[in-house]
Design a protein around this nucleic acid. Sequence first.
DNA 1: CTTTTATGTCAGCCTTGTTGACTTTCCAAG
DNA 2: CTTGGAAAGTCAACAAGGCTGACATAAAAG
Lengths: 166, 166
Amino acid sequence: MADGTTGGENLLFLTDEQLRKGIEAMFFAYRGFTADPDRILGELSYGRAHHRALHFINRSSGTTVNNLLSVLGVTKQSLNRVLRTLIEDGLVESRVGREDRRERHLYLTKEGADLERKLSEAQRARMRAAYRAAGPQAVAGFRQVLEAMMDESIRAQYLSIKDTRT
Amino acid sequence: MADGTTGGENLLFLTDEQLRKGIEAMFFAYRGFTADPDRILGELSYGRAHHRALHFINRSSGTTVNNLLSVLGVTKQSLNRVLRTLIEDGLVESRVGREDRRERHLYLTKEGADLERKLSEAQRARMRAAYRAAGPQAVAGFRQVLEAMMDESIRAQYLSIKDTRT
DNA sequence: CTTTTATGTCAGCCTTGTTGACTTTCCAAG
DNA sequence: CTTGGAAAGTCAACAAGGCTGACATAAAAG
């Protein structure tokens, strides 16, 4: 930013105008962020909710429904509708828990993993480009601000899950 | 970030794992970002769509419907539904254009401006806190990455609208 | 005068969120 | 063993807010 509006030279930079620009940046960037997967999902008559489920099942393979519920922050009825179609379509496998047989542990099938990869690769490509354009230092700041913007409980959850996959 | 995962010391930082964390950060942060206004809107039986309309009418007072349409990226039917209730409820005023009488120019009424302020102040408070927690340099990076993540056409639009208000 | 543009509106559909009520399964405490 | 309650699933109903398509009107443009 050559106009200095995002520069760090001034400590009294928190004008309402600055904050408004930040708010709009979040709005527009989030649209870009979801645009590529949305296009792919549209062709398959899936929605963003399916993408989110696939993402978090992939990230935390074998997670329970309750677990997924708290991460996604939706009701079980809402998640169930999405999950049911994914299971019916053979993208997700639901296995009865060994220790607690009430629980269902969720896994991606090969087909599910394929779609997840396709979706997340589209999203990663955009983020990779943005990261490259902005540079490493900007990326560090990006992550710091985003983390500070999360709800407390969510941030703890987000930070705790470092690498659940192997 | 003490773990170095968001540090800028390494130029080869674009692992899929890094990108995945960035993707999740966007997801969780956006939830936090919308949480406070959503609570206020829920009590008034308005939704996020109303907030967006109020925001952009406030930002670009006197904007036309077509203008708003392209900024928001929705269909006119979708926007019209929201706009109609805002006008009926006396939050937005629609004036016939002077030069081109087909156009409707949109303005916030006092009530509309009051609600917009209440909503955006809640959102600004969170962003202010996040900015303060992360520091000026992080904020610069945050904005840089977000801008790089927008669609080309949107970014141009976003950057062009510096200060339409006085 | 005709075409195009800006806007509004009706109808209908979809996704994805909600609440509430109910059932089934099954672990664990009494 | 019985029972309470947690986990999960299901059904119904509803709302917000996207979408498409069709159509009406007014006014600008040609």
